[in-house]
Write a protein that binds this DNA or RNA. Sequence first.
RNA 1: GGUGUCGUGGCCGAGUGGCUAGGCAGUGGUCUGCAAAACCACGUACAGCGGUUCGAAUCCGCUCGACACCUCCA
Length: 490
Amino acid sequence: MDTKFHIYNTLTRKKEEFIPVNPPNVGMYVCGPTVYGDGHLGHARPAITFDLVFRYLMHLGYKVRYVRNITDVGHLENDADAGEDKIAKKARLEELEPMEVAQHYINSYHRNMHQLNVLDPSIEPQASGHIIEQISMVEDIVKNGFAYESEGSVYFDVEKYNQAHNYGILSGRKLEDMISNTRELDGQSEKRNAADFALWKKASPEHIMRWPSPWSDGFPGWHMECSAMGAKYLGLPFDLHGGGMDLKFPHHESEIAQAVAAKNTEPVKYWMHNNMVTINGQKMGKSLGNFITLDQFFAGDHKALEKAYSPMTIRFFILQAHYRSELDFSNEALQASEKGMKRLLAAIDTLKNLQPAKTGDVDASEIKTKFYDAINDDLNTPVLLAHMYDGVKVINNLRDGNRKIDAENLETLSSLYNTFVFNILGLRNDASEDGNDDKALNRLMEMIIEIRKDARANKDWATSDKIRDSLKEAGIQIKDTKDGAEWSKV
RNA sequence: GGUGUCGUGGCCGAGUGGCUAGGCAGUGGUCUGCAAAACCACGUACAGCGGUUCGAAUCCGCUCGACACCUCCA
């Protein structure tokens, strides 16, 4: 491989070669879910995108510590009210402990992630378990003069910070514009400036999630947890911070400001942001009636869905677009992906059964170079898949005897496809896993195919077709190749 | 209004200053008892209008439109 791994750094707005701060160790932090609702596509995209980053960095030989947090304190419902957060609200409405609400959705998030074949992170810290660290970091910021206390709450002094540093370095915003564009909101009298954000918030009497602090019984501001937990588990500066583009401002911008204000260091070397997901060209929202959870996708249980889509179809579909492009879900597009993925996976099965020739005309190292060039170019999975499909043609031609391959190239090609498809892209061949490994079923199918073969030899097409049609109803497809019949689960 | 990202063939989706990815769908063909699968062949698309250039879909400007964030919802 002669190309180096390059990623697009939001901070510099260009592609940069990835060079870790302390090789061979890599620290990466990704904003995880706020656990107060079922998992949906908006959760799947960043999870899969950064799962790919995680997998590829490990493939390159790095020792990766991947931290993905769980936000179980909840973001403020809005800036104007006294500060009830989303989880507390849900808990109050359902008469549950906030931690019951959080645990319920943590469990369902984990289940969805495993279905999507997303690897577990190395550490999955919860905000509620790191209140002490967050308070300590707020104290540092206060001590350094970039925050002030007001009515039991603590606010980050954005204007003062901006005089010494640059608030807007990540998002490209200018403080003057932000101030001039801010409308008047109620309950902001505690802040000196509308752009200031809460580091610690005093809890109103009805707020059930609260912790003691030097300032008040309350809860941490919504950017604090990532700053505190990233610093604790990865040290500053660490290599990679990821998340959705919607988090760029104000969340990530404020994380940078907090780290600089508290520790006087830029916290992160490379910032990566995945783009958003739309459904039929519209953004997904509960109010728009196109809000589809992952469970609904997997079960086909939503009026907008023509059928169920397997977790692997969703994963493959997400990988078919570049992570920085907007991605639009539609039944048509999903079904196209499903078929395409099946063809790719079928070719890998074919690859297993290929026999090498003494000499051949297939150069596997050429294909290998193309694969690595694509993924090294800011994880260009659509181009990678395009090259994979070129290889699928080669594989099918080998099977049909139109081309020959020698043993060495066959070995290279085979390990290349298995590595990329299963280890790096993280796809799973559901059909062969729960189907072809079943010994009893295999024996049974051998027998049925033998019977059908006899029928065909006798030109008993009625029996032959009956077997084929019945099996199809049972979810098994027969393909008559010139080397005999093959079967697979549909 | 501000900031950012975009507008590519029927659908999805890469990419590049001249050699015109890929998937799905479609058409014709090969194979087959039929079917499926597979293979072969076929589509000169790049929002609009100007400009730069020998040459632009790719660079610049303007116009129109979309999406995200700043404000809800995730």
